[in-house]
Design a binder for these strands. Sequence first.
DNA 1: TTTGATTATGATAATCATTATCAATATTAT
DNA 2: ATAATATTGATAATGATTATCATAATCAAA
Lengths: 143, 143
Amino acid sequence: MNTSEAKKVFSDFIRKKNLKATQQREEILDEFLHIDKHITADELYYKVKKKYPKIGYATVYRTLKLINECNLANEIKLGSGKTKFEQKSAGRHHDHLICIKCGIFIEVEEEKIEKSQNKLALNNNFTPTSHKLEIYGFCKNCR
Amino acid sequence: MNTSEAKKVFSDFIRKKNLKATQQREEILDEFLHIDKHITADELYYKVKKKYPKIGYATVYRTLKLINECNLANEIKLGSGKTKFEQKSAGRHHDHLICIKCGIFIEVEEEKIEKSQNKLALNNNFTPTSHKLEIYGFCKNCR
DNA sequence: TTTGATTATGATAATCATTATCAATATTAT
DNA sequence: ATAATATTGATAATGATTATCATAATCAAA
């Protein structure tokens, strides 16, 4: 999914829910779609603020929640206490290797795991929509 | 690992770190080892309080952190904002299916996933120590 | 294109979980 | 038993997120 498709998903969502299309939401979504990996609410706030200085903190949180609701983002909760958001997809899902010493964050993909997960869910009468896998340990520099 | 083995792990840890063996720590660990699934810090606080009314909130948090450090517990962070702790093992690791509608929490095991995870980590020069897998979706009642 | 109804915004207060502080108390090696 | 050190519990502080509310913006309908 590219940027303009994502924007369409968002605007369709806004319309369907009888919400309003505002410049703030557009700016926030646009900035979010230009990030590479993951971002926290406050990081996104500062990014948006550069282009749109009167943006409010709460609006960023609220919009991030909408972006999440319409399935364009994934939430990642880590030890730090801050919630990170990443773009869902670009087609593929990725998981995370997290070093418990230096905190480095490695993104990986593994299709086998995806398949096992689906099987596991179905065996339990469960319809999966998404998942989160984090592997903790030591990266090569901290071993 | 049974209760008394776990207690030994904890007391060895205490000794090795030059910490002190206190009644509070013993009570908290004991209560923790008697829970079935997962528990939050405040839930554990109230449980301990019944037997040991002068226990303090901070002591529960601190002890839970120790229990976690010596590898007797796993942290689970979910949407709710509260950190849950579960006993690590009883030998086997389990993952979670979480219903995004009703919030029900299903525990599952899948050895294949464990193996794939280890492989994935090693392929990335990463030494895994633990992991967290959460699959979100709809349980059979909410489908 | 104005109006009217409704939703959004932004500033900031409130909340909630967790952590830090610190004086008093308990533990442990000697 | 003593001295040295760590722990406790009460509570204040912190930090992230959410709620509040007056003002402003959006949008459907006339």
